[in-house]
Design a protein around this nucleic acid. Structure first.
Lengths: 149, 149
DNA sequence: GCCGATATAAAGCGCGTGCAAGTATTTCGT
DNA sequence: ACGAAATACTTGCACGCGCTTTATATCGGC
């Protein structure tokens, strides 16, 4: 076993931890958001991302990247949210192939209602993870992450 | 804006970063494993977990937790892998509700063939993430994680 | 032996994926 | 300036897989 093998194993171990923590949080969030606000985690993520883009808009393709979704899944996701009146499509003037999306007042309101749930569940899930020996170090690292923007 | 609000925002930011990194890695792995070895990431995870349990067996429910899957999803996953001859079900003698699973030689071999791909793609994905400003700190933290076990 | 709890399985449903075809619009080559 | 190629999004389809709910078997305590 050489140094290189160790590095590989450390990466694999890190990935397993990351995946485990992600799974734990996502499952908790999914249940809570679904039960309380009829939103999936991706849907919440999209609404949140849109609310965060103050003054400027995201194109479908950017949204797709942000949500780690394929092109057609994004179309359908946006369509779903649009039909629920949570966001609107806007043709962009400069490149009329592109499509922007924007939160409607209803969307902002739902997001505002949902955010406390989201934050609470996230806090709880992290606390639970912190109590799990294998996950605790990663949770710790997460807290120490430089606060970007 | 108080201190508490900041903490909430930091957690949310951390979660977004975690989710983004997870999505990036998972997507890369999924493509590569699917294309090269006809395995999904969960399937690989399960085989890997089984191979790691040397001498000792996992029950379905433990497997479910390890893969962040529901009970029934686990049933079908195991069924799938069993039908491909990669693992076998073993009824356990002491508690006949329980079912153990064990890698077959074919399963071990496929895993051995797949592992290099997995490691290479993981390395590449992490390198790519390291080049992304928002993700780099987390990747860094991952490398520094105390090596468990 | 009976009852609640636990472990696994089965069936129906929703949603994401990949691919292909379609439309609108921009950009490039000549 | 015009037509061809590239780009952005939508739509339909087949497929896979996870989730929830519901059924069945088994265990443990009383």
């Amino acid at each position: 076993m050489g140094i290189a093998d160790d590095a590989v194993e450390i990466r694999a171990q890190g990935w397993r931890t990351l995946a485990a923590l992600h799974g734990l949080i996502e499952t908790s969030l999914e249940r809570a958001l679904q039960a309380g606000h009829d939103l999936s985690v991706v849907e919440y993520t999209v609404l949140d991302a849109l609310s965060r883009q103050d003054g400027w808009h995201m194109r479908m393709s950017q949204l797709a990247r942000a949500a780690a979704l394929s092109g057609s899944a994004t179309t359908r996701l946006v369509t779903r949210l649009e039909q629920r009146g949570l966001l609107t499509r806007i043709l962009c003037a400069d490149d009329r192939r592109g499509i922007y999306t924007e939160l409607t007042p209803a969307g902002s309101e739902l997001l505002a209602q949902t955010r406390p749930t989201h934050d609470r569940v996230l806090t709880d899930a992290l606390a639970e993870a912190e109590a799990t020996p294998e996950l605790a170090p990663l949770v710790d690292a997460l807290h120490r992450l430089p606060a970007a923007r």
